[in-house]
């Protein structure tokens, strides 16, 4: 049965897939980045429908607000002509195909491995920010700390790379 929630998710998913295809097929690099922004925003909308508004907010702040801005900076600081075309073929068809098929297999096994997925209904219960915070600092503490360590390492690494030019 198609509930309003399911209909919303399906609609957003089709829109999302359209944007994702556009990201890969658009020749104009700048347009491609903005299609990607569309993908990330639509994903946030799906999170909202699934009852995770906090996750949606963080998705917009970090991915749309952060990652896309970083890409725009990259374009601004490297490109010379605004309409530079990107090569559509990276000449890595073999590895790319292998990665894509591998990813598909992983996802399909995950979906088939959870038979209750077909009968599962998303709970209308919203997962608030406080629950997420509690989970981060209790059951998922190790993952949380490992992630922050990774980010710290990346940050220090960037500083070291940038400072190399001084000496």
């Amino acid at each position: 049965m198609i509930t309003p929630m399911l209909a919303g998710i399906l609609f957003l998913s089709w829109l999302l897939i359209f944007c994702a295809i556009k990201v890969a097929t658009t020749k104009n690099l700048v347009h491609s980045v903005f299609w990607l922004a569309g993908v990330l925003l639509l994903m946030a909308a799906v999170f909202v429908i699934l009852g995770a508004p906090f996750l949606a907010g963080i998705q917009v702040v970090l991915y749309t607000g952060g990652v896309i801005t970083l890409m725009l900076f990259g374009i601004m600081l490297t490109q010379r002509k605004p309409d530079t075309q990107v090569a559509m073929d990276a000449e890595n068809r073999g590895p790319a195909l292998a990665t894509a098929v591998g990813m598909l297999l992983v996802l399909l096994t995950a979906i088939w491995g959870t038979p209750e997925l077909a009968t599962m209904t998303p709970s209308p219960q919203m997962v608030g920010a406080s629950e997420v915070g509690k989970i981060f600092l209790s059951t998922q503490l190790l993952a949380f700390e490992v992630l922050s360590l990774l980010l710290l390492a990346a940050m220090i690494g960037t500083i070291v790379l940038v400072r190399k030019g001084d000496h």
Binding site: P53, F54, A56, G57, V60, V61, T64, G65, G128, A129
Partner: peptide
């Protein structure tokens, strides 16, 4: 919204 301020800041980021 339960995440009112996050909503405002997310839009400000855009």
């Amino acid at each position: 919204l339960d995440i009112g301020i996050l909503w405002v800041l997310a839009l400000a980021g855009l």
